[in-house]
């Protein structure tokens, strides 16, 4: 599913974060955050509320700027790397769905802008168990259904790096299972995952393979 690139046989990390510090207002959120992410790895950013987890993810996907330090994607700074934009996908707190469009219309729009194959949509809808609400307006969906629809974008986009901010919020047990399976599959395909979550994984495979990055 995820295209394997020839140049990462070298063992170099795909994503490298060096000495990242962030100040919001006059408060230091975090200082000297370092980590590396190789293919097939998952980093779980942990920390109490307000410790800067979301900010860290937003810096890594270039939505916000750090006070100092930098993030590199395959050796290039992410803010100047066009490759990074083509190879990463971010799902934040907000789901990016338009309430006035149906779930399917939303996903169809996303597949078009992401240059994805529209024919894969039915399978993806099935995979995330969205069949029952695909013709409903996104504004009428429950929070959990919206989350699933937002996560469907990950499957459409087929990117190597997944950056997920609290992907499990509002999901039921079954939904968590589905998403954890997706994560496992993505790691097996040598994809990279950077996520924040307050809950522990249910899957032992993910629990064993995750690396924790703790912000305090």
């Amino acid at each position: 599913m995820v295209p394997i690139e020839t140049d990462d046989v070298s063992g170099k990390p795909c994503l490298q974060v060096d000495n990242l510090s962030c100040v919001r207002g006059d408060r230091l959120l975090f200082k000297d955050v370092n980590f590396k992410l190789h293919r097939g790895e998952l980093v779980h950013v942990a920390g109490p509320n307000g410790s800067g987890k979301t900010t860290l993810l937003r810096i890594v996907c270039n939505l916000t700027w750090p006070e100092s330090g930098q993030a590199l994607w395959r050796g290039e700074p992410i803010n100047r790397s066009e490759r990074f934009q083509r190879e990463s996908a971010y799902i934040g707190h907000q789901d990016g769905l338009k309430s006035e469009l149906s779930t399917l219309e939303n996903l169809r729009f996303h597949s078009r802008v992401l240059n994805a194959d529209v024919r894969r949509l039915p399978t993806i809808v099935q995979q995330l168990e969205l069949n029952r609400c695909q013709y409903l307006l996104a504004g009428k969906l429950s929070a959990g259904q919206r989350r699933r629809a937002a996560l469907a974008r990950l499957l459409l986009a087929e990117r190597v790096l997944w950056i997920l901010d609290e992907p499990f919020t509002a999901l039921d047990r079954n939904g968590r299972q589905v998403v954890e399976n997706l994560l496992e599959q993505h790691l097996e395909n040598r994809g990279l995952v950077l996520l924040t979550s307050h809950q522990a994984f249910m899957s032992t495979h993910l629990t064993n393979h995750r690396r924790e990055l703790s912000l305090s």
Binding site: N62, G92, H110, L114
Partner: peptide, 10 residues
């Protein structure tokens, strides 16, 4: 609803 963020990341 976060659609703007997604536009920036395209």
């Amino acid at each position: 609803d976060g659609a703007l963020e997604q536009f920036v990341l395209l």
